[in-house]
Amino acid sequence: MAMVEVRGLEKHFVRRAAPWGRPTRVTAVDGFDLSIEEGEIVGLVGESGSGKTTAGRCLLRLVEPSAGSFAFRGEDVFAMPPARLRQARRQMQMVFQDPESSLDPRMRAGAIVEEGLVIHGLGTPAERRGRVREMLELVGLDANRADRYPHEFSGGERQRLGLARALALAPSFLVADEPVSSLDLSIQAQIVNLFMDLQQQLGLTLLFITHDLRLVRHLCNRVVVMHRGRTVGAGPAADVDRLWGQISTGEPAGSDLEFRSPPDRRAAEFEI
């Protein structure tokens, strides 16, 4: 059995046009399947609004899934009671798209990286400090800058800080949501190299959510294509163009469908 097995994941949000309005159901994820072998990097691609970010967040239960199952090493994460889920999160970490909003501006870099270790009660303070230095160096940041605040780092450095935080717990499964799309080309290459090193050195298993097909071809072993909330294709990363082409052919360019904006993100505030 694969390390990660997701079957029939669904996520619905309830939306009201106005506080007194009739609630309507918005389906963000509607039948998402995924399997990842240990040590594999799998790309998850889809257009904006296809539900790929929501699906990724559901895996870590940062938003609660509405239906489906997620077997992580054979255990259903979606059925875990809260205490067990907290333990399991040591194994599963997430890197967010936007380093600006996912780092607490009032915490120093070192404390940000250390926080997960404190929450999980790992190590003595001295051991934790050592681990923080090790993580900062691993992602190519100067460990002497651990007492700086996030705003003192550049965008690329903040993205690496988010990565150091995620890696501090030595997770075996990482979900990275567009981790390089906000970065400049030269910095993007540094992070992509780091992911490849981590896969080789630590055997990291990675779900890499992106809209950049070139990155999928370069970095990933396999790719899963999402369209309108569903998994519509999966295969070797080298086939990404063919798989991607399949979802595009259904809708001729300039058709009315293209007018439709992606589902309203504000809907996420009203979960069921």
């Binding site: 030269s186 910095i187 290459a189 540094q190 992509v192 190299n193 490849m196 370069h218 970095l219 990363a237």
Partner: peptide, 9 residues
């Protein structure tokens, strides 16, 4: 594919 990228340090 799979080759390290020539990042600018």
């Amino acid at each position: 594919p799979g080759r390290r990228l020539a990042a600018i340090p």
